[in-house]
Computed example of a mutant assay.
Amino acid sequence: MTRWSPQPAPDEPDGLILFDGVCIFCSRWVRFVINRDTEKRFRFLPIQSEAGQALAVRYGIDPEAPQTNAVVLNGRIHFKSDAALTVLGALPGMMAFRGLKVVPRLLRNPVYDLIARNRYAIFGRTDACMIPSPEDRKRFL
């Protein structure tokens, strides 16, 4: 098992997505999920929050320089490309993305890492975390 392999996370809230709240790309990812998550299965936690930092540290993510997002689903926490594909595979109409998990992490994660390493340069960053709409606010921890 590698550092970024899925791990047991039985005490974490199911459907929780940990994300970089000042990353514009990451905030767009959250908006993408919100718009497609008709069952409202997912909730969101910016890594810049106290709870987000604590969760990150528990699973070996540096809160000052996060190199991955994470998702807790069915008692396991997923990182990097596994996290993205796990979320996509759980959204209506996106189940085909589950099939990409047959591609080894050894090939998937370098692509993820390239985007993650350059996300601020390519997409930008903000000084503050995104502010959800009043109706979506209850989905943020």
Rank of each mutant, 00 (worst) to 15 (best):
Phe44His: 03
Ser81Thr: 11
Asp37His: 08
Trp4Met: 00
Cys129Gln: 07
Pro134Lys: 04
Gln7Glu: 12
Leu18Phe: 04
Pro6Cys: 06
Leu107Ser: 00
Thr68Gln: 08
Arg108Met: 08
Gln67Ala: 07
Pro110Asn: 04
Thr38Asn: 11
Leu114Lys: 07
Asn74Asp: 15
Thr38Asp: 12
Ala51Ile: 04
Pro10Ser: 06
Arg108Glu: 03
Ala54Ser: 14
Pro104Val: 07
Pro92Glu: 10
Pro110His: 11
Leu73Arg: 05
Ser133Asn: 06
Ile17Val: 10
Val33Arg: 07
Leu91His: 02
Asn35Gln: 14
Phe97Asn: 00
Arg137Ala: 15
Gln67Ser: 10
Cys26Leu: 11
Ala84Met: 14
Lys80Pro: 11
Pro13Glu: 07
Arg125Phe: 13
Val72Cys: 15
Arg43Gln: 14
Val111Thr: 11
Lys40Ile: 07
Thr2Glu: 12
Ala116Ser: 12
Arg125Tyr: 05
Arg137Tyr: 02
Ala9Phe: 09
Arg98Asn: 15
Pro134Phe: 10
Val71Met: 14
Glu64Lys: 14
Val30Ala: 06
Asn109Met: 09
Leu106Thr: 09
Ser5His: 05
Arg108Val: 07
Asn69Phe: 10
Asp113Leu: 02
Thr86Ile: 06
Gln48Arg: 08
Ala56Lys: 06
Ala96Tyr: 02
Arg105His: 06
Tyr112Lys: 02
Ile24Met: 06
Val72Arg: 10
Pro10Gln: 11
Pro13Val: 02
Lys80Trp: 15
Ser49Asn: 03
Val72Phe: 14
Phe19Ala: 01
Pro134Trp: 13
Ala9Asp: 01
Pro10Cys: 04
Gly93Val: 08
Arg76Leu: 05
Ile131Gln: 07
Arg139Asn: 03
Thr126Ala: 14
Asn109Arg: 05
Ile122Phe: 08
Val71Gly: 13
Tyr59Pro: 01
Ile24Trp: 01
Ser49Cys: 02
Cys129Phe: 11
Gly21Ala: 00
Ala116His: 09
Asp20Ala: 01
Ile131Asp: 04
Pro63Phe: 13
Ala121His: 02
Ala83Gly: 10
Val72Trp: 14
Met1Gly: 08
Thr126Asn: 13
Arg58Phe: 12
Arg108Asn: 11
Phe97Val: 04
Ile115Gly: 08
Cys129Asn: 09
Leu55Cys: 05
Gly52Met: 07
Ile47Val: 15
Ser81Gly: 12
Gln67Lys: 02
Pro104Ala: 05
Ala51Gln: 13
Gln53Glu: 13
Asn69Glu: 12
Leu16Arg: 06
Ser49Asp: 03
Phe44Ala: 04
Pro104His: 03
Pro46Glu: 01
Pro8Ala: 15
Leu88Asn: 00
Ile122Leu: 11
Arg58Pro: 12
Arg3Ser: 09
Val71Phe: 14
Arg76His: 13
Ala96Lys: 08
Pro8Cys: 06
Ala54Cys: 00
Ala54Trp: 00
Leu114Gly: 07
Ser133Ile: 05
Asn69Ser: 08
Lys101Cys: 11
Gly89Arg: 00
Ala56Arg: 01
Ile77Glu: 15
Asp62Lys: 00
Met95Ile: 08
Ile61Tyr: 01
Gln67Val: 08
Arg139Cys: 03
Ala90Cys: 15
Val33Lys: 09
